[in-house]
């Protein structure tokens, strides 16, 4: 029997092959057959989650809520020292220098990444902005968000910090971050579904050793991970509680 593994679609396309390397390593070191399938967008991935096809997932914090609370997924591991933060950027030439400069009817370019969008909406609350008094356009990639901001189609763009950091220097030169979240408690997580729960401990034991193995290490480094840390179920539960408090008032 082969297990079904998938990764939250918020990774940069640059990392597609890196995830296949991780899966190859994982199969070799656990002796299990694992099939990796990647999705371009959140919609299509949610569909396979709802169809209960997923056994192992590298989930973003937002989807973790559905996976854990609705489908009974269990926590396995998290990437060491890596948290999810949002950046809000303006065009380099923009007169806007801080969140408080933003006015009602600000034009926002964002993606369908629910996690980043939510964190960034919290960052603009101090300017009394919400979805009710802003103009939000959803783009299919962070590159498009950057283009909207640079081209003056949007006043601000919402980015996942790690993706912003991955933008090319030419693009970054035309942008200027005005604020970054410093939440530190929200992160991606590797979770297992029903079929794979019996293998949870074996997976954990294998993953914590990944950074000590030369091949494992290079696969991790390609993703800019320094290693995996074991994740307790309560840690994920608390992160979901925290996310829940942020969701309500968008």
């Amino acid at each position: 029997m082969s297990f079904f593994f998938t990764v939250s679609p918020d990774f940069s396309p640059l990392h597609i092959s890196d995830w296949f390397l991780v899966n190859t390593w994982l199969q070799r070191n656990t002796g299990e057959q694992i099939h990796l399938e990647l999705f371009d967008d959140f919609e299509s991935q949610r569909k396979v989650i709802e169809e209960k096809k997923v056994d192992l997932i590298y989930s973003n914090p937002y989807d973790a809520a559905i996976l854990v609370r609705k489908h009974g997924f269990k926590a396995v591991a998290r990437p060491r020292d890596l948290t999810d933060e949002a950046i809000i950027a303006v065009a380099a030439s923009s007169p806007i220098t801080k969140v408080e400069d933003l006015k009602p009817q600000t034009r926002i370019a964002t993606t369908d990444d629910p996690n980043v969008h939510m964190m960034a909406m919290i960052l603009i609350e101090p300017a009394d902005l919400s979805k009710a008094n802003t103009v939000i356009t959803i783009r299919d990639s962070y590159m498009r968000v950057a283009q909207d901001v640079i081209g003056g189609i949007a006043d601000v763009g919402f980015f996942l910090k790690s993706t912003y950091d991955d933008l090319s220097d030419i693009v970054k030169k035309q942008l200027r971050p005005i604020t970054t979240s410093r939440i530190y408690m929200v992160h991606h997580a590797l979770l297992v579904g029903n079929n794979m729960i019996p293998l949870k401990e074996k997976l954990q034991q294998t993953l914590v050793k990944m950074s000590a193995d030369p091949e494992g290490k290079s696969a991790l480094e390609a993703l800019s991970f320094s290693g995996w840390d074991l994740l307790e179920q309560e840690d994920v539960e608390f992160m979901i509680d925290l996310m829940d408090t942020l969701v309500e008032k968008e």
Partner: peptide
């Protein structure tokens, strides 16, 4: 602060409470 206070519920049972506080606007 602008605070949200919630009960922490695990397997249907309340185990405690949490508060997550964020930056309020000057107007508020």
């Amino acid at each position: 602060v602008y605070a949200t206070v919630i009960p922490n519920v695990r397997e249907g049972k309340r185990i405690g409470f949490s508060s997550i506080r964020r930056q309020p606007s000057r107007v508020k």
